[in-house]
């Protein structure tokens, strides 16, 4: 067993977990933060994307123990003071989802992307979303939403 302490959405959390526990399972099963989705077992779909120390990572491909001492932000931690994050608002306004399964991961990736590229080009958006698969939308509205998210972020 591994004793871990990490910060999740601004709150310090300590737990004892099996060494092999994946961060995604820790978030979902232990902390009941089920907004982080698990859509594959090949590390390809990105539905499980969270931020660890400010970087988008696939929480299904990281051990909870590796996150010891880290700052983790999940989709549940993105809205601040009851106000949606620009990426969340943009996905809603642009109707960038159908079933919504990929959406938490898409939004976490988008939030990291617009931080890195405040005015992303189409090329940067498409390249930046390579680690996130959507089986419904065909991506058009998702790309629009990322652009819109950048605009909302700027206007903030």
């Amino acid at each position: 067993m591994a004793k871990i302490t990490l910060t999740v959405n601004g709150e310090k959390r300590s737990a004892e977990v099996e060494d092999r526990t994946l961060l995604a399972n820790f978030l979902r099963d232990e902390l009941k933060l089920t907004g982080t989705h698990v859509g594959c077992d090949t590390s390809q779909c990105g539905a499980c994307t969270v931020h660890v120390d400010g970087r988008a990572v696939k929480s299904c491909t990281m051990l909870a123990a590796q996150a010891e001492g880290c700052e983790v932000v999940t989709i549940e931690g993105l809205a601040k003071n009851g106000k949606l994050h620009p990426a969340q608002a943009a996905f809603t306004e642009c109707h960038a989802l159908q079933c919504g399964f990929c959406t938490p991961g898409m939004i976490m990736t988008t939030a990291a992307l617009i931080k890195q590229h405040p005015q992303p080009t189409d090329e940067q958006i498409v390249h930046g979303l390579e680690g996130n698969l959507c089986r419904c939308t065909g991506y058009l509205n998702i790309v629009k939403a990322v652009k819109h998210a950048a605009e909302l972020q700027k206007a903030k």
Partner: peptide, 9 residues
Amino acid sequence: IGDPQVRNR
């Protein structure tokens, strides 16, 4: 290499 999340780890 791969995608942003893969490159981040």
